[in-house]
Nucleic acid binder design. Structure first.
Length: 572
RNA sequence: CGGGGUAUAGCGCAGUCUGGUAGCGCGCCAGCUUUGGGAGCUGGAUGUCGUGGGUUCGAAUCCCUCUACCCCGACCA
């Protein structure tokens, strides 16, 4: 491509409403433009990157024996009513009506459509197992789209669905997909980890998320210092403390704590560590009523763990101010487990505390020197909190460290959730009717582009991994307006590079050198070639890699082999 | 959905409090100079001041309506 008439829409200034670096750089490099909240146009340069991701995903899915299909983005409501999700899915599902007032939705995912297809097409166990995938635009009406294409409403996703006669066959394909995802993210040049994830109603250890590690990630991941345990913090188990509770030493006292509400207030006011304070949260119960959850002051409630308790409403909902006063006789800020009339469920770590501080269930007062078993009954304990840095690993190997990740892939075993709701089955070897067992496997294709930038940038712009770069080479002529030799050499080199299949951008805009260098750096092209008078005298062009400061003078004859070997190193 | 904020040239912003001829930087167009890290000078084009209504001799500015977008909030006891 020649830049003079390529829509290279780079901008110098950082757009005001882009918060994270990938969003800023995608706008500045002219990869995307916003149309409305969570809706983006992919510009020529950005689309090339998106296509690179797609191509690698497609190659590896094909290699793993999956068959590509393309299903409609718009889906009839009937299918969603069949599966029960029309009512369950909520406002994230974009519902639309056609001219006959029939209900449709813009697909946020395709379990219903594929299950419907398979129940019509698959007749015999001889056709199984089978795995179908598509790369397609999805729409999820997110409460709060943000971070550009990282959390957009419309986005490109690869979704795959596998069908099996039994669990053993599903496990095989699941493992194959795990390996395939590992290959894909490795080829994309990303630093990533597979982590155990929450499976919702499915249960078991049959779900993994693939996360690109980045400080801006929206998910927290817990890693074990020894061994390979890794899990989303949503799921990671906090083990009960190994040491027994220390004996009580202090007497129970009620102290006035006017205006002191938060753990931070109380610990500062009474000069005790936050971990010596307990916080009490009142939440709605599953069958109505109120339940108290008690945690150590330095710990955070894990809403997913709490919502799984049989006593607690799912999803988790906090008690209103009126409900608090009715249940405890005080406002938030003075709640405590002592003398509370509602059932209390206590986190393991909170149950281990001795001589602790908590609210007195009387506005403006707290209790100090409180002890389980003495001042209130021994608690019912469970795991309620998020793991924190330094907690013991649930698998017994070392301690946990917390890092942030961007979820770019998710594989899980669906079992028979959709196939039984939608009566998708076939005949087995004995002629018996069997309900199919399913797996599903997603990759956020457009999100990967943003995630890759989060991991690969510097102060000058994007630094593309070889496999994702929109172009391999940026060809820059110096003083082309004055020098026939430079112009001719650059033109010749440009054609030669393309003849060898090396994707090259030729900057024929006639800009000053500084502008050309700055744009080349901003859009992150890996290999930079500069053609100038002084090099031509020696029969060389100047070569620089985006990641390096080293400038090398390469004889023209060695150029193509050099670039080809750089590319080959990243294929497969 | 609750709270906060913003909307003025392609982009980033000032002007609004205190009503009176719509501005700055970048970008864009033309010319000259310049050419190894986002050039300089000269000249130029570009605005229903988000929408609709109201007050006023006069509204970007004051009042009301609507819309769009951004940020914060489901980790607080």
């Amino acid at each position: 491509m020649k830049l003079a008439r390529y829509l290279l829409a780079t901008v110098k200034e950082t757009p005001a409403d882009a918060e994270i670096i990938s969003h800023q750089l995608m706008l500045r490099a002219g990869m995307i433009r916003r149309l409305a909240a969570g809706l983006y146009t992919w510009m020529p340069l950005g689309l090339r990157v998106l296509r690179k991701v797609e191509a690698i995903v497609r190659e590896e899915m094909d290699r793993a024996g999956a068959q590509e299909v393309l299903m409609p983005a718009v889906q009839p409501a009937e299918l969603w009513q069949d599966s029960g999700r029309w009512d369950y899915y909520g406002p994230e599902l974009l519902r639309i009506k056609d001219r006959h007032q029939r209900d449709f939705c813009f697909g946020p995912t395709h379990e219903e459509v594929i299950t419907d297809l398979i129940r019509r097409e698959i007749r015999s166990y001889k056709q199984l197992p089978a795995n179908f995938y598509q790369i397609q635009t999805k729409f999820r009406d997110e409460i709060r789209p943000r971070f550009g294409v990282m959390r957009a409403r419309e986005f490109l996703m690869k979704d795959a669905y596998s069908f099996h006669l039994d669990q053993a066959s599903l496990q095989e394909t699941y493992d194959e997909m795990y390996r395939t995802y590992t290959r894909i993210f490795t080829r994309l040049g990303l630093e990533f980890r597979a982590v155990r994830a929450d499976t919702g109603a499915i249960g078991g250890s049959h779900s993994h998320e693939f996360h690109v590690l980045a400080a801006s990630g929206e998910d927290a991941i817990a890693f074990a210092s020894d061994g390979d345990y890794a899990a989303n913090v949503e799921l990671a188990e906090a083990l009960p403390p190994a040491q027994p509770r220390t004996a009580s030493a202090a007497a129970l006292r009620e102290v006035a704590t006017p205006g002191q509400h938060s753990i931070a207030d109380i610990s500062a006011f009474l000069s005790v560590a936050p971990r010596q304070c307990l916080k009490t949260l009142l939440v709605k119960g599953r069958e109505g009523g109120i339940v108290a959850l008690v945690l150590r002051g330095d710990h955070e409630l894990n809403a997913i763990k709490a919502a799984k308790l049989p006593e607690v409403a799912d999803p988790l909902a906090f008690a209103s101010a009126e409900e608090m006063r009715a249940a405890a006789g005080c406002n938030a800020g003075s709640l405590g487990p002592v003398g509370l009339k509602v059932p209390a469920i206590v986190d393991h770590a909170a149950a281990q505390a001795a001589d602790f501080v908590c609210g007195a269930n009387r506005d403006g007062f707290h209790l100090t020197g409180v002890n389980w078993g003495r001042d209130l009954p021994e608690p019912r304990t469970t795991d309620l909190r998020n793991v924190i840095d330094g907690d013991p690993s649930p698998d017994g190997h070392g301690t946990l460290a917390i890092r942030r990740g961007i979820e770019v892939g998710h594989i899980f075993q669906l079992g028979q959730k959709y196939s039984s709701a939608m009566q998708s089955g076939c005949l087995d070897e004995q002629g018996r009717s069997v309900t199919l067992t399913m797996g599903c496997y997603g990759i956020g294709v457009s999100r990967i582009v943003a995630a890759a930038i989060e991991q690969n940038h510097d102060e000058r712009g994007i630094v593309w991994p070889e496999a994702l770069a929109p172009f391999a080479v940026m060809l820059i002529p110096l003083n082309a307006h004055k020098s026939h030799r430079v112009r001719e050499a650059a033109e010749r080199l440009y054609r030669e590079l393309w003849d060898h299949g090396i994707e090259t951008l030729y900057d024929d805009r006639g800009e000053r050198p500084g502008v050309m260098f700055a744009d080349a750096d901003l859009i992150g092209i890996p290999h930079r070639l500069v053609v100038a008078e002084k090099g031509l005298d020696a029969g060389t062009v100047e070569y620089k890699h985006r990641r390096s400061d080293e400038v090398r003078h390469i004889p023209l004859s060695e150029l193509i082999p050099l670039l080809k070997s750089a590319r080959a190193a990243t294929d497969n």
